[in-house]
């Protein structure tokens, strides 16, 4: 005998059925005491997400997956059961990497942020309303794998400032026409400041890429953000804004930003 959906959740050890058995009319019941392991389906999440039994092409393309991101408190459960099921059912690992993050913590000792516990006095939802989803993601990206991170409004504000500055720099670049012939930077006459910026940028691309490849997103963010503020925004753009360069153009390749044609000084 099973409960109606409207009665759930129930604990059969404590709650009796509301009606006699519909088959025999009996009123004496023995409660089920076994617990269904709720990791039964979530331990198959790579296969389910990959369309196992439903989309063979997608499944072939995506299994084994590249990454399982999860927190540390469910290594024994979610990570272990997923590996176990994949090994037994399919004879393979479910992914090549597992990224174990820490928790987002509510301020003032509020503990772990979760759907069940809520977000405390400065919840992520409230932070999104106040600073934007980008700012909240920026905060989360400030902390490397394995470490807890307390909700920090200063970091949300820093993320907000970054988005505003990015937008303003983009608007500045928008003034300059796209030079269709300049898709190949090697064909553009470059000023010394351009060469400096390009050299710095390509070092940053190398460092950020290496960091991302090791799932060190906080390090990738730090090196990229430093370049943006201290090389591009505060210096290169200011040189351009103050008329140190002429004949500006915007190119769509290479730095993915814009460069200036010829230096006046």
């Amino acid at each position: 005998m099973v409960a109606k959906e409207s009665q759930l959740p129930i604990d059969p050890r404590e709650q009796r059925p509301e009606h006699p058995c519909s088959a025999c009319g009996g009123e004496e019941f023995t409660p089920e005491t076994d617990v269904l392991d709720t990791w039964a389906t979530s331990s198959l999440s790579p296969q389910i997400c990959a369309g196992w039994g439903m989309d063979d092409q997608l499944y072939a393309q995506t299994v084994p997956m590249a990454l399982r991101p999860q927190a540390h408190e469910i290594i024994r459960t979610w990570a272990f059961y997923t590996i176990l099921k994949s090994h037994h059912h399919f004879g393979m690992l479910p992914w090549t990497d597992v990224a174990i993050s820490g928790w987002g913590l509510a301020p003032e000792g509020g503990g772990k942020i979760s759907k069940k516990r809520g977000g405390g006095p400065a919840s992520p939802e409230e932070m999104m309303d106040r600073y934007s989803a980008d700012a909240v993601r920026y905060w989360a990206a400030c902390t490397g794998l394995g470490r807890d991170s307390v909700i920090n409004e200063e970091k949300m504000e820093a993320g907000h400032r970054l988005t505003v500055k990015l937008w303003n720099v983009a608007r500045f670049a928008e003034r300059f026409p796209v030079d269709a012939a300049a898709t190949d930077l090697s064909r553009v006459p470059l000023a010394p400041a351009d060469r400096w910026l390009l050299s710095r940028l390509h070092r940053v691309v190398t460092e950020a890429t290496e960091a991302f490849e090791h799932n060190e997103f906080a390090a990738a963010k730090a090196v990229t953000e430093w370049f943006f503020w201290h090389n591009l925004a505060d210096n290169y753009i200011e040189l351009a804004r103050n008329g140190c360069m002429t004949k500006p153009i915007r190119v769509t390749t290479g730095p993915g930003w814009f460069c200036q044609r010829r230096s006046k000084r």
């Binding site: 990206a141 970054l162 990229t224 993915g256």
Partner: peptide, 17 residues
């Protein structure tokens, strides 16, 4: 630059792009 920051601040970078 925009591509490098896209994983960190995905909305504004996509809008700019």
């Amino acid at each position: 630059m925009i591509q490098l920051l896209a994983p960190i601040v995905p909305y504004v970078t996509d809008a700019i792009y």
